[in-house]
Design a protein around this nucleic acid. Structure first.
Lengths: 372, 372
DNA sequence: CCATCTTCCTTCGAAATCGAAGATATGGCG
DNA sequence: CGCCATATCTTCGATTTCGAAGGAAGATGG
């Protein structure tokens, strides 16, 4: 899949191109060269021709798709108490997605071995015979050094610090391996649903607060830690010490975990962020007020970032995102305080990709490694 | 200068490559193709061979440079009360740089016509005969829409709002025209001095506070307004209303203009940011305390941004930057409050390019247009 | 000083790519 | 229905690019 052929496959797989003509436009190659390459790719069974597309005023294009038998990707999104697992074809379309209980606190060896077994399980149960697994990837709820595939200084993952996750996964599968922060994966996944957005911020509001940034269609990692907003100091009357050792971090006020602990102290029992959402939908005032305050704090932090990187859109996902007051108060804070220039075309909305965003993102990023 | 040849010229002009071998490595072309192209470029007078470089263990490379007669760029950096003007060769090296008084409040027509005359003046006085002007560019102390070359909602530039600067400049010169925010130009210029930095934040601390960001070696503009940090709300006891209509903007506390107005109220007369620097160097405690406080406030804002985009370096420039306590307190705030992961390899220092950074940046960006 | 290694650059036949022209297919319009 | 405009895709000779081999020039190390 070297060079030019890989580029063409990538364009088709990523959904950017569906016909030879589109490939020619996007790849910069001459139409004749594209035809040649495509013929070879069809010959080798990686691409298939599938009916005709819609005309744009002339002859209808012959639609190209990745062959369903070209290969599969196994991807996971690890959470604190459960994991989402899925099989995708090379175009990133899910064949299966499952959620299974899984304690990340059991430590890296146990979790990764469990995940590897689950991948093989999925392949056996849902993989069409003869279709090879071409890559594996997982999202981690903590910082990941993308170069080494190690977890770095995570806050709620005992035993994981500096563990070589990619290496361990690679020991099970002799395939391209992707290990990435979960919010970053969400950003990569969401980006496929926002094709016109060059700069995209994706906020993951769940037990913790995560954020991923796409710049020019690529995930921005900085030196590996980019996207953190949870340990920003917020304006607040009281004073709370965060797990990171500093005072008044956003996470200590506005994360799902923080909201749950306040509610539990008030005698309202909640076990998961989704419970908080349910309380809000039931109109429980304590919950609504808390969520609204969380949204305001998050929005005030986003204010700084919106002025600075001036994104096309902010997408809010994560288990807390269905709570209407959250996004409403985020919107209010951003639109009130940001420069008009920065907000004039800014869209702030909930996820378009849904709960599988991170899995889709893992597929999208893995594809680059598989077709390298 | 189309296509491949343009790419090669760009690599030489930007200082990334100095020999055929380096060009081959960086451009991805085969060494033989590079040789062929270079021979043509030398034949057409754009490149010249200039002696031998230093050996890296084998035969010495034959150094390539842009021909001094390939063309010139005229660039300017407009400030409130003065402008820096310069002529650069296509490799971005300055032939002349001058500073001339110029009131931006005189309005766009007068200022741009004055600038055009000054460019022609410089060409007549310092341009070698027969060497053509190939592009003109200017930095503006306010937001610029890069697509249209218009100024958008500037704060201290009466009469400039929505004025088509690029168009007016283009009316004088039938050449590629660049109009860009001054802090963005500083960022582009500074980036040439930080070749290993993929993500770079450049802070301009002068009368106002500006910021430019380089991501993956390219200027990040977002929707056109990226880089603004001056209207971020800061934590403060008192309350000041900023010119933007909001309370407690960073600019209202930490800009050179804000510092000057406080000092003047205290009976210490200052007229320019450089006067504040002089007071600090003379050990005037009021000035030092003010500057230190400004650095702390700026640093606290940078804290959020450093965690978020995780840059390789933060460069501080602008007329206030020579004040030692400023950068010291910025450093202190950032290192104290940011995540260790984000600061472990972060460098915070003053400009390497000096006062001409914006001019160099204009040259660097113009080059792309000229060699397109 | 000579053999050997490294790096830089060129030569030349093979291979990939281009681009102009044409073949194919479709929508729109009188 | 026939013709034109438009768009997609293919054919084929011309051009560009590649890459392996080799020559040129210098470093290294006995």
């Amino acid at each position: 899949m070297r060079g030019a052929q890989g580029d063409l496959l990538r364009l088709v797989a990523a959904g950017h191109a569906e016909s030879r003509a589109e490939l020619a436009r996007l790849s910069g190659l001459a139409a004749s060269s594209v035809s040649l390459r495509v013929e070879e790719l069809i010959g080798s069974g990686l691409l298939v021709e599938e009916g005709a597309g819609t005309s744009r005023g002339g002859r209808r294009p012959r639609r190209l798709r990745l062959s369903p038998s070209a290969g599969l990707l196994a991807v996971a999104d690890l959470g604190a108490h459960h994991a989402r697992l899925g099989l995708l074809d090379l175009s990133g379309t899910p064949l299966v997605v499952e959620e299974r209980p899984c304690e990340i606190a059991d430590g890296p060896e146990a979790t990764i071995d469990w995940m590897s077994a689950a991948f093989e399980d999925l392949m056996a149960a849902h993989g069409p015979p003869g279709v090879p697994l071409r890559g594996v990837g997982t999202g981690i709820p903590g910082p990941v050094d993308p170069a080494t595939g190690r977890v770095v200084a995570p806050s709620r993952m005992p035993g994981w610090n500096n563990f070589p996750v990619a290496e361990r996964l690679g020991a099970h599968f002799d395939l391209p391996v992707l290990v990435e922060n979960d919010a970053n994966l969400m950003a990569a996944g969401e980006a496929r649903s926002w094709p016109k957005c060059e700069t995209l911020m994706v906020l993951k509001a769940g037990s913790g607060i995560g954020c991923g940034v796409m710049v020019n269609g690529a995930l921005h990692r900085g030196r590996g830690a980019a996207g953190d907003i949870s340990h920003v100091r917020v304006r607040s009357d009281s004073s709370v010490t965060c797990s990171c050792g500093h005072d008044d971090c956003l996470e200590a006020y506005a994360s799902g975990a923080a909201l749950m602990s306040v509610l539990n102290e008030q005698g309202i029992e909640v076990r998961r962020p989704a419970d908080v959402v349910a309380l809000v939908e039931d109109g429980v005032p304590e919950a609504t007020a808390l969520v609204r305050n969380a949204g305001r704090l998050i929005g005030e932090v986003l204010t700084v970032l919106v002025n600075f990187i001036n994104p096309d859109a902010i997408v809010v996902g994560g288990s807390l995102s269905p709570a209407e007051p959250l996004i409403a108060s985020i919107r209010a804070a951003v639109y009130e305080r940001c420069l008009p220039l920065a907000t004039r075309d800014l869209e702030i909305s909930t996820t378009r990709s849904g709960p599988d965003a991170a899995l889709l993102g893992a597929g999208s990023l893995l594809l680059d490694a598989v077709l390298a």
